[in-house]
Computed example of a mutant assay.
Amino acid sequence: MLPQEAPTEAIVLAGGFGTRLRSVVSDVPKPLAPVAGRPFLAWLLDALQRGGLRRVVLATGYLGEMVEAAIGSRHGTLDIAYVREEQPLGTGGSLWAAMAATSGDRVFALNGDTWQGANYAAMARSAPEADLVFAVRPVEDRARYGSVLLEEGRLVGLREKGEHGPGLVNSGIYLIRRELLAKRPLEGAFSFEKEILERPEGLDIRGFEVDGRFIDIGTPEDFSRAQTALPEWSARA
């Protein structure tokens, strides 16, 4: 469970078009893609519930009405709320808009098409005063992803894709302090990665290392792998 006064809210970005997945899933938005008989988003919400969170804001867009109909206002012990974008806002614009529907000083944020084994309580304790804490995971070859450069746990830069060798890569779980929005008062559509992670100057951004259990259902190959990997990982969580 999360420690006392730790963040208990999360934002899940669930508005993607799922273009690369349409050859195998075309009738529902990507977060609702069926994995082992359940929507992928249900597995993700299970993990947030196990982590001690109590409220989740789903930031929807494309086919958002289907997400709301499938998930509703409760998932287990989680209260579910919705913020729907009328036009694409990018990862950053969606997050900034959804923050208005939260009340905590710090809020978790994650993508609705990836699942990562993470200890939310430990992540919350790791750097409580940081503007942003984000999950990183070790890989044997960083060429596919690009990588993260940390010095004493602080983000100092990013490396481009294509460089081979071991490294740390972004796993897409963020813990955002509300004051970050005032420090970067951006409006409309923007990329969280480009405007925040690629411009860490003046911000206290920390990396938090998580284990290697990670899956992104954005491609047919990884979607197929999720059918067995997610039930197995969830059983061991």
Rank of each mutant, 00 (worst) to 15 (best):
L41M: 06
P34V: 00
E65K: 03
R125Q: 14
A42K: 02
L95M: 13
V107E: 09
L21R: 08
Q116T: 15
L21K: 07
I80G: 12
G72T: 04
L78P: 10
R55F: 05
G61K: 03
A14T: 10
S94H: 09
W115M: 14
L63F: 11
A33V: 07
G61D: 10
R74C: 06
S23K: 12
V67C: 07
L48Y: 07
M123Y: 09
G90A: 00
F17D: 15
R20L: 14
T102D: 13
L32N: 08
S94E: 10
P39Y: 01
V28S: 12
A81D: 13
M66N: 03
R38H: 10
G104N: 12
A101I: 10
N119W: 06
A36M: 02
R84P: 05
T114Q: 14
R55Q: 14
A98N: 11
R74K: 13
L44D: 03
A124D: 08
M99P: 13
G117N: 13
A109L: 11
A14K: 02
D27S: 15
D105L: 12
R54T: 13
G90Y: 02
T91V: 05
T114H: 11
R20Q: 13
G52P: 08
E85P: 00
G51I: 09
L48C: 08
L63V: 00
A70L: 05
T60M: 02
D79V: 01
N111F: 15
G117A: 15
G16L: 10
S94L: 09
A98I: 07
A36N: 12
Y120T: 06
A33R: 07
L63M: 14
R106I: 06
R20K: 15
L45C: 05
A81H: 12
Q116N: 13
A33S: 12
L48A: 04
P29V: 10
I71K: 02
A14E: 05
D113I: 12
R22S: 14
I71R: 00
Y62C: 01
G16D: 13
P29E: 05
L45T: 03
A81S: 11
Y120P: 01
A121P: 03
L89K: 05
A59I: 01
V83E: 14
V25K: 04
G117K: 07
A69W: 00
P39T: 01
E86T: 08
H75N: 05
A118S: 14
A42D: 13
Q116C: 13
N111D: 15
G104L: 13
R55G: 04
L95H: 06
A97I: 04
K30D: 03
A124I: 03
L45W: 02
T19S: 14
M66Q: 15
I80E: 09
Y82I: 06
